[in-house]
Design a protein around this nucleic acid. Sequence first.
RNA 1: GGAUGCUUAGCUCAGUUGGGAGAGCAUCGCCUUUACACGGCGGAGGUCGUGGGUUCGAGUCCCUCAGCAUCCACCA
Length: 862
Amino acid sequence: MALEKRYNHKEVEAGKYLNWKNKGYFTAGDKTKEKFSIVIPPPNVTGKLHIGHAIDTTIQDITCRYKKAKGFDVLYLPGCDHAGIATQAKIDAKLKAEGTNRYELGREKFLKVAFEWKKEYSEIIHQQWEKMGLMLDYTRERFTLDEGFNHAVYTVFKTLYDKGLIYRGERIVNYDPEMKTALSNVEIVYKEDKGNFFYFKYRLKEEPEKYLEIATTRPETMFGDTCVVVNPNDERYQKYIGKTVINPANNQEIPIIADEYVDIEFGTGAMKCTPAHDPNDFIIGKKNNMKMPIIMNVDGTMADGLGKYSKLDRFECRKILVNDIKEAGNLIKIEEIKHQVGHSERSDAVVEPLLSKQWFVKMKPIAEEVLRHQATDDKVNFVPKRFEKVLIRWMEDCEDWCISRQLWWGHRIPVYYSKTTEKLLISDKAPEDIENWYQDEDVFDTWFSSALWPFATLGWPLKTEDYDRYFPTNLLVTGYDIIFFWVARMYFQSLNFTNKAPFKDVLIHGLVRDSKGRKMSKSLGNGVDPIDVIEKYGVDSLRYFLATAASPGMDIKYNEEKVAVASNYLNKIWNSARFILMNLPEGYKEGKINVKTLNELDKFILTKLEKTINKVTKAMDKYDYGIASKILYDFVYDDFCSFYLEMSKVTLNDENADKKNTYAVLLKVLKAVLMMIYPFSPFITEEIYLQLPEHLESIMLESYPEYEKAFIFNDSLEKAEVLRAIIETIRNYKASNDLAPNAEVSIILNSKLNLKTLEAYIRRFAFAKDVKFDEENVDGCISFELNKTTLFIKNDIDKTELLNKLNDQKSKLENELTRSERMLGNPNFVNKASKEKVEQEKEKYANYKAQYEEILKKINNL
RNA sequence: GGAUGCUUAGCUCAGUUGGGAGAGCAUCGCCUUUACACGGCGGAGGUCGUGGGUUCGAGUCCCUCAGCAUCCACCA
């Protein structure tokens, strides 16, 4: 006896993954089969994986294992992302803790540290993939900074530049003063902060007693004011247009100009314009050809030339400046407000809009191409569908993408500037006369390289076998939170460079939240470590939970109870296998099912099994893993364990019975159940599979069960369902009459079906000492109407209780009859509903009517 | 301000084209039946957020309102 009473996840999981990996089961390449390819969303090498990765990779792995079992050549391609800003933030913090920083170290040494860091965390990530059981093809593993990838990034940059889709320009960008780098729009997180609205007097130069009231939330930028702007249609201010005011921050004279951009209704209707420090002001400044003084350094301190304010931190400067203006009598009031303030996603620093020279991707033509493609039949199919709108909306109004970052960890921008002329050179190698050039100091935005992931990992721009075979990929699985970060960018880069969408389907899943529905975060300390869950319940249970706890695209709340439920379910399967294996004779060899000699119950379970296979397969093909698992769950508990296994004991315990078919059926059903649960929970199923009398080297080589019409026996199904109803009715009768479950009863069965073949089952499970068929004398019996069958139970209960029961049934039937009469009496229903429906209803009615009359008779008899 | 989603049993959530409301947990009763007491058997519990509409028929389709959540844009 190999299986223990309770399945032990640690023993079951031990050693299996390495065995699979070493045997090469994860390696794609069988060209006789149709391919199915999927790339892992490369995790950042910043730390260990969290439960978000766990749900993402679980869904991917379920899909891959299912497809492999269905006969596909599956490629599940692994890899990591260098994650420029995220990783550099961590390394910077580490250096700081060691009392140094990247500038002290210098670029070369910093990169050495960074690569060591990458090595360390990539090892952790590998261990976690192993724990999760992912069938990743490690022979094809990639990293976004490996050599081939660098070449891909270079090729993309050069090509886009040559096409005029990349340009270098001075624009307002979102600047992170902590990381000292530019950011793209999507790397900003807006949070509601308390702030102040400061109202100042901008006095007229000619008439200092008069002033314009100007409000700002960022007074420190006033050093960069170049004018005051009012709407030309604003009657209050028309007379001031063209006059000069004094900037209360630095007493400079600045003009009042008119621009329709200003909203008359908003605030005081007059605004200061600081073109180098605000995106809207920048537009006005550019339109009016203004100077654009930069008054802040990239680290958030005030620029030189501002007297005592220079070198002050921006927030410190704000305080002092406001106080100084107040003392000069130019502060009107301070209003407390709540407003949304942009923070850097990585460093959490308040983002500063800053004029600077950066590289940009021109988004408009690119976005249009995506929108055009998405309107064709080749479009990317989003599951659930509604997430397509998220992509489209973003594509419709996206701004140019700032791709340069003032960081060191990443792909260095392959541009050399001439020291003497305006010329620039794009090359992935240093020019021979390097003394005349200097290289761009910046690196690319991480997403600039991750956008190439689905094709660069397969060898592009080289013409490789893998690229030809596995691109475009079939599926991308990811959370809705990174649709625009990543999905959109892969889409347009792929269209640009391969003329194809990078994937056929995109399966979007939700976020895993804590048990109260809050986002998991470090600051709340409410994160769930998947490794802890695996330790306690096993990875099979965790995977089952993650894949089935929600419908597609919906967030799930982490619920330990449900993980435990999954574990109990797996234990149920474990024990059903144990039961079957312990009943097989010594040295049993798998036999064939002889359809001619199958008994009714065998036919029943085979029929149910085939129907289940059919439904489960359909759901799996639609990535409806919640539905697929639910169908299987119901089959396993209700049909297989609670009913068929119990019934099979009749045959198994009968010394004279021919058990060949039952053995074969038990094994067939068990194997099919194992295969259907296997993609969700591969370890326990492998363990059981290898105990079967006949098996391949691993469940990973086994095929998914196919629907076989030859095993559909609807007659037996009907009879078995009646049998189930008989047993349930008798049990129910006993329970509601305070009879022990094993109290013996005598019954009579009058049926249009031939139930005699089921007598043994009835005797055993209803504890019926006396079973008679088709008896006319039913005196003293209570009757129950079942499908085509009347069940009579010899009643020993006193009459009043019996009468109550009969009256109960009578009123239920009366309700049914009125309902049915109303329907059938409704000409609309009779004429418009489908014929089948009407027929069904008529049949029901006749049935109810007959039952009703029976009951009336009995009540009268009493 | 714009968009999307959610509202179903005490709790957490399923419910695939409209054809008599489901699961798990919790709860109540019974059961030492040799696969499983992390089990088995049986029960109780819902006017499917509000108000309308379409339909013979609506948890399911359309409109209204309310509450909650998320995303986007946020304005000096």
